[in-house]
């Protein structure tokens, strides 16, 4: 479980995150949603410790990440996996080398075991025949999947995904959502996902935190999203006509 309390972050006097508190539960896919520029990436970077919030606290199962010593932080980081918004694959390495990198640097297993683990992760994300290609030689969706494989290589307790399906077609998006969901369940990870994709919200939104202009506007789950009366949330989630019609139908059924 990860708990954030009263996170505030400013850049040069401009407040980007204002007093955000939330709980991300173990074994669930926890979503952070919000418009482009609302502060999702900044929040995620604060949570993983790449940015330091101006004030507030971030607890990983009772360990406050802001107060850890260097070697304690390094230890905690070995339990984190992260998929970056732009995949952040190492472009001088092949897909297989990318997935093996955390294993090579951290794990003490033999080469054979490390390679076996990497191949297992690649199989998990359905990338088995591309392991010898370089990031510049694969598609955006494949890069995301390779990024996920690298993130789960060390079998992390905490998995973070920054817009895992932005820029992908609906079908591939769905596959990636399901993949993250399945991995979360299979290994009981605490998974935090940034997204502005409504399909993801409806599919895998086990807990949802809606951020608007740096403020936590609404919290709930995918069922509550449909019935919520929060105007800002409705404007955001049901921006598309199709979704609005579905919502009306759902509400009629209930009413």
């Amino acid at each position: 479980m990860i708990e954030i309390r009263n996170i505030r972050k400013t850049f040069d006097g401009r407040t980007v995150l204002n007093n955000i508190s939330a709980v991300f539960e173990t074994g669930k896919t926890n979503l952070i949603i919000g418009q482009s520029g609302s502060g999702k990436t900044v929040l995620l970077k604060c949570i993983i410790g790449l940015l330091r919030p101006d004030s507030g606290d971030i607890m990983y199962d009772d360990a406050g990440i802001l107060h850890l010593r260097k070697h304690e932080l390094d230890k905690l980081r070995k339990e984190m996996g992260m998929l970056f918004q732009g995949s952040a694959l190492f472009d001088s390495m092949t897909v297989l080398e990318n997935v093996m990198f955390p294993l090579d640097m951290i794990s003490r297993d033999s080469y054979r075991d490390r390679k076996k683990r990497a191949m297992f992760c690649l199989e998990r994300v359905n990338l088995l025949n591309s392991e010898h290609l370089y990031p510049s030689e694969i598609s955006g969706g494949m890069m995301k999947r390779a990024g996920i494989a690298r993130a789960i290589a060390l079998n992390p307790k905490y998995l973070f995904c920054d817009e895992p399906n932005s820029g992908l077609d609906p079908k591939t998006s769905l596959l990636i959502d399901e993949l993250i969901h399945d991995i979360t369940k299979d290994y009981r990870m605490t998974t935090v996902i940034n997204t502005h994709d409504m399909n993801s919200v409806i599919n895998i939104g086990e807990t949802i935190a809606f951020i608007k202009e740096g403020v936590l506007e609404w919290q709930g789950n995918k069922f509550e999203v449909i019935t919520s009366n929060n105007q800002a949330l409705n404007d955001f989630v049901f921006a598309s006509d199709l979704f609005r019609k579905i919502k009306d139908m759902e509400n009629q059924k209930e009413g």
């Binding site: 992260m82 190492f90 990198f101």
Partner: peptide, 22 residues
């Protein structure tokens, strides 16, 4: 520099790897 702006260095740090040393 390219590794920095494409977050490859952040990715290393997140794994607990000393990116400067590596």
């Amino acid at each position: 520099g390219t590794m920095r702006v494409t977050e490859q260095i952040d990715a290393m740090e997140i794994m607990g790897v000393n990116s400067a040393n590596f």
